[in-house]
Nucleic acid binder design. Structure first.
Ligand code: ZN
Ligand code: ZN
Ligand code: ZN
Ligand code: ZN
Lengths: 159, 159
DNA sequence: CTCCTATTTGTTATATTATAACATACCACT
DNA sequence: AGTGGTATGTTATAATATAACAAATAGGAG
């Protein structure tokens, strides 16, 4: 991830979002797209109020500034569609930029750098399989799995 | 977990806590033990303010009732020692009652029932190994791993 | 034992994260 | 235009967590 053309990440993810919303009959409104674009701007997780601040900075005069429910509604919408993920261990959110052509419902493994905030998302195939098998062995029915690895990324270790 | 003598869970965990604190030169004070005992009372996760309410209910007259920092300090202490775990996806805490004779530092996999709140903790050996290998493959150094499975336990499915 | 220091606890206030509740606006379809 | 569903605006508040500082307590050095 150190060097890559991030415009491609944005391009692809935006297009996927449009298609997914269309296919599910959901509306990717201006507000929702704005929140998504804020998160797409980098592979970092942001808190809801950080997003809110950005929205307020951008906002045109002549109308009230956005309030917390505005951002939380957009986040809920994007979470439902799987376009973003929440980092439960730090109450923050990041845009999903993995290739979802094969796994629309993927188990995300997030590798979060505690030094720079970079989030590296990987899709867990074998890991998910193992968890579901283990759960089944004692009759537990899994709805949702959270896997978060906190640590230091390669770039920050080199510093 | 459906039927078991929970007194044994409490007994073992309490003894382990005493030994661990002693071996690390930390003091398991009355307050800390109280919080631990509240969490040991069941295999369920509780919020910090639920614990606080219990502490207040129990508290003897003649002195001020405990405040949030009191419970958060005790929780931090117990988390540091690995005697309890936090459910990051619901901001709650549960006592670790797995056998730690072999893995003092274990990667906890929590299976949390969204119907009854029961938490089934398993130790991830293979899963941890896989995650660390995957992280190493792109130079990420893991400090801490969070694995939480939300779903419905066998008992609640039967209802 | 007495002083000293580090740790723990008490207390007040406040920061941070998230949602409830209700009004208004918008959009698609008739 | 009328109607019903979805989306947004707005105000207030709930739920979770920590900062800051004062007081008490516990153990060791002298
Ligand atoms: Zn990128
Ligand atoms: Zn993803
Ligand atoms: Zn038990
Ligand atoms: Zn454990």
């Amino acid at each position: 991830m150190a060097e890559h053309n991030h415009n491609i990440c944005i391009e692809k993810s935006t297009q996927f979002a449009q298609e997914l919303a269309l296919s599910k009959g959901k509306k990717l409104t201006a507000q929702r797209l704005l929140v998504l674009n804020i998160l797409l701007s980098d592979h970092k997780a942001m808190g809801a109020y950080d997003i809110l601040d950005k929205m307020r900075d951008m906002h045109v005069a002549g109308q009230g500034k956005p309030q917390p429910p505005t951002v939380y509604r957009a986040l809920d919408f994007l979470l439902d569609l799987g376009l973003i993920h929440k980092v439960e261990s730090q109450n923050s959110f990041y845009a999903c930029m993995v290739d979802r052509s094969q796994d629309e419902h993927h188990l995300a493994q997030a590798f979060i750098c505690d030094a720079c905030g970079h989030v590296d998302e990987k899709i867990a195939r074998r890991g998910a399989q193992n968890l579901f098998e283990k759960a089944a062995s004692f009759g537990f029915k899994i709805d949702k799995v959270i896997v978060e690895c906190r640590g230091i990324c390669a770039t920050c270790q080199a510093i």
